[in-house]
Design a protein around this nucleic acid. Structure first.
Length: 297
DNA sequence: AGCCAGGTTTAAT
DNA sequence: ATTAAACATGGC
């Protein structure tokens, strides 16, 4: 499968599979492993790069070979942000002293999205209020406890649980893996509505940014931050900027305010000029900050 | 040990 | 209309 350049597969997959505890996104020896449901059955995707940053070609294998790759094409396009023009973002970033440096260093970096908006939203729930490390631990336990798994080369790979399983999960079980009572309810309620057909998250992909945000905020447990997070992280909406996000505020603070504390208004004024890629700009800043901190430490 | 961490709802003023 | 409290775990 060919992808519009630039795309640095290693950098991109590396960001989303960086901790050993992440059971959803495994990246090892150049292969990104992802289990997803196709025709109701879990299948393992093994994705690797057989091209270059400026001539990117993705090699995708399906295990077991139960279906044609063609049927997964749309999902793959969503997962690898194929509707975003990263060349345009690069051009735009050249006009800014800070972003020029960041963008050049991270050329080809893309946010890899989960295959469904259900997963994106549940991830967002887990990340509300607590640290990313804590959220990741909890998310891995969700997958381990409720997700179907596929054994491959002696190792288990987990799919994100289905709406059905989470709709029927009991509160005690969800509490036990570290979710708060409140979040357990959000997840159960969302799953139930999806299962009943009262709500179809995937339909939201056809809406414009504001309509999608408003629709998401109708869901219990979803405030502005969560809705904006789902747009940028799950729907590939490059201009969605969760300005209340602490991680983004920290990144903007370091990049533009010498580490002084910033407000959401500061975030908007600093990154608004990268529209329609303000969310991508935020993503690049955060990864850049993470890298430089890791290199120093 | 204790505080903060990629917020949201509910229940007070 | 605005504000406070409660909430869960992991890292430092």
């Amino acid at each position: 499968m060919s992808v519009e350049p630039p795309f640095d597969f290693e950098k991109s997959a590396g960001v989303f599979a960086r901790t050993a505890r992440n059971l959803s996104d495994v990246y090892e020896n150049g292969i990104y492993y992802r289990v997803l449901h196709a025709d109701g059955k879990p299948v393992l995707l093994l994705v690797s790069s057989s091209g270059t940053i400026h001539n990117p070609i993705l090699k995708v294998e399906v295990y077991p070979r139960v279906l044609k790759l063609e049927s997964l094409k749309e999902t793959l396009r969503v997962m690898f942000a194929c509707s975003t023009d990263f060349r345009k973002f690069s051009e735009l970033s050249e006009k800014d002293r800070v972003m020029r440096q960041v963008s050049r260093k991270l050329t080809g970096l893309r946010p890899i999205a989960p295959p469904t908006l259900f997963e994106a939203l549940v991830i967002a729930f887990t990340e509300q209020q607590i640290s990313l490390e804590a959220a990741m631990a909890i998310r891995s336990r969700i997958v381990e406890k409720y997700g179907e798994s596929i054994r491959f080369n002696g190792r288990k790979y987990y799919a994100f649980p289905t709406t059905k399983v989470l709709a029927n999960a009991n509160r005690k079980g969800l509490r036990k893996i570290g979710l708060s009572t409140r979040k357990a309810e959000f997840i159960k309620e969302l799953s139930k509505h999806l299962e009943d057909g009262e709500l179809d998250l995937e339909d939201l992909r056809s809406l414009d940014d504001n309509s999608a945000i408003n629709a998401l905020m109708e869901i219990r447990g979803v405030g502005r931050w969560t809705a904006e997070y789902v747009l940028i992280r799950g729907m590939g909406r490059s201009n969605s900027l969760p300005a209340d996000d602490l991680g983004i505020q920290r990144a903007v603070s370091e990049a533009y305010f010498h580490g002084r504390k910033v407000t959401s208004a500061d975030v908007r004024t600093s990154l608004g000029k990268f529209a329609p890629y303000s969310g991508i700009a935020a993503f690049y800043l955060m990864v850049f900050l993470f890298w430089t901190q890791r290199d120093r430490g």
